[in-house]
Design a protein around this nucleic acid. Structure first.
Lengths: 336, 336
DNA sequence: CAGGCGCACTAACACGTGTAACCTGATGGT
DNA sequence: ACCATCAGGTTACACGTGTTAGTGCGCCTG
């Protein structure tokens, strides 16, 4: 491997010259364009030359010509990413690759406009994420002629994609588990991180629905600081209140772990003094004291499912995107 | 907002027609090409029309013309991603954006070739990641004329980027902390996940270096299963061995949490019976019992630093990429 | 043997952009 | 009076690809 790089790109013109054919014929072979009669011998000759020269079609030119790129952008949340998330992206990418698309991800930043600039640079066929995009970015995507945007910008915050699976469904399942265990006074523990306020509100709303269905009072919502003393303070406040909750739905496993640590400091333990259920099933959950009961979802399946829905929408079918809560289930350990 | 979408892209021809100027003049204004005399009035007119029409230059065409794209790909590892990771990407993206580049990420998958296809589709200016790329992908990137690849493929696994900061440096600092606390018999706890075997080996090697520097015997390496019983088994085995370790460097916080849980099951506690130090400072670390001492690194700074090094390399400077361990430090809690 | 027809292939255009080269008046210097 | 210069533009080409509209040519058929 020489250090000098001539830096000359191998184009389809090169393989045309190599085979003595025209560039058009080469293109027909490489894309197996239908309604073209090309003898097997020629076909072989082209493929061989292409492989020998190491020809790779230049995507920008292809995109320019065809008007649409085969890229799909997935916006990753900046909240702590479980291995779950990697699996989600992995499976979604697999499904999309099968359909000829290429998946790239983009980590969300607080500065708005980043996603918009990205879409201007990529001209992707579709963009999807787990929560609604800021209007500024949506505008940029529209200008970049992005075909499909998920969740759709016009959907209210109540019935969009994020709400259906990652939020409402999870919160509901948390509360249902606690209710099945006999609890009647339930609280919701929310993080005080504003970045996830919409998500946490959604999960709490799901829990509230489950309580209403069971004829129970709506759960109180308390922000929980992510340090031991702060969490202990919240627990003390709960126990001092007139209708003290006996169980709590934590926004996620980290909030739940904070609560368990706070209880430990107060000499309390779960589930006896207070049952705690988390969400996401992060690896640390099983090592907590006591091991944390939580909600897991098979995000691999979810990713594949979502990707398929996206493909259908790209094909023009007006598709409703309310996802069935595929494989979301309770992982029962000891804390609830 | 009408439902009908004419789906016509706004091109620079449109703004030329709108202003009554030629397309070239428009281009000169929008890129403020030097050595062109354009009166302020015309300039204003163009900018205004561009804004009014919502013109966005079409990246594929621009890339095709200029030969180089402004994209840079960052391959994210599929190991559990701490918020740390998001911060790393965020800061790196910020620095690159200042220089006119756009950062996209791609989550690593086990199937090789994914990254290669991505590069063929994006034709990025550079690709960087945290560990060496498989040869198949490197070949694809070379064909796609990717300018800079980090870590460079020819570098051995000993001195590349990943080894310098994420592995050796961290392992060394773990061991140094334990040695400073008076420990002389140290063990290393490795995960049994093959995906991170190279990383964990690097961290263990760093710890071994520190021990050698202090004249201590090389630490034993034990794989730790990520469940309580398995971890407890490893701890028992250590204590039964003739030269039982008094402290252990865990590959990361999750392994450390597993060890703490295993010890708890055995009725042991840290740091009295066995000191445990983790790495990464995940949020759950501070909620462990006892709170976990660990190594944190300011990955925001690290990302910015790495991005700047990448930019220098793109500018042609032959840059050595051994990163100074920026802001890696011990977070001392109670477990060690 | 003229005409029609499928085969194998090619010439030429379009996509949207950046830029080098050229053009046209007006002005200034000698 | 004449050339040089310069402001303020425009024309034309290149980038690499996909695709439409042909173009010869051999073969079959009436």
């Amino acid at each position: 491997m020489p250090a000098k790089k001539p830096a000359r790109r191998v184009t389809s013109t090169d393989v045309a010259r190599e085979t003595g054919l025209s560039r058009a014929t080469v293109s027909f072979v490489l894309n197996d364009t239908p309604n073209q009669s090309i003898p097997q011998a020629t076909r072989q000759r082209v493929l061989e030359a292409a492989a020998r020269l190491g020809y790779t079609p230049y995507a920008p030119a292809r995109t320019l010509r065809s008007g649409r790129s085969d890229l799909i952008v997935c916006e990753l949340p900046d909240w702590p990413q479980s291995p779950t998330m990697a699996e989600f992206v992995d499976r979604a990418g697999e499904v999309l690759a099968e359909a000829g698309y290429t998946l790239v991800t983009h980590v969300h930043t607080d500065r708005p406009g980043g996603l918009g600039r990205l879409c201007a640079a990529l001209a992707p066929a579709a963009v999807f994420g787990m929560r609604p995009f800021p209007p500024q970015d949506v505008e940029a995507m529209r200008r970049a002629r992005v075909g499909v945007i998920l969740p759709p910008p016009q959907a209210g915050s109540g019935d969009d994609l994020g709400a259906s699976v990652w939020t409402t469904g999870i919160g509901r399942m948390q509360a249902e588990h606690l209710i099945a265990k006999g609890h009647t006074r339930i609280a919701c523990a929310l993080p005080d991180d504003p970045r996830v306020s919409d998500l946490s509100a959604g999960r709490a709303a799901g829990a509230a629905q489950a309580c209403a269905d069971a004829g129970l009072p709506a759960p109180a919502r308390s922000p929980v600081p992510l340090d031991i003393d702060g969490a202990a303070g919240v627990v003390s406040a709960w126990r001092a209140s007139p209708d003290a909750p006996t169980a709590v739905c934590a926004y996620n496993d980290e909030v739940a772990l904070a609560l368990l640590a706070g209880m430990r400091r107060l000499g309390l333990s779960a589930p006896g003094d207070l049952a705690v259920i988390g969400a996401d099933d992060i690896p640390a959950a099983r090592f907590a004291a006591p091991p944390l009961t939580t909600i897991a979802l098979d995000s691999g399946d979810l990713g594949a499912h979502l990707a398929r829905a996206l493909l259908r929408t790209l094909d023009g079918e007006e598709q409703d995107l309310t996802l069935a809560p595929h494989g979301v289930h309770v992982v029962e350990r000891e804390s609830a």
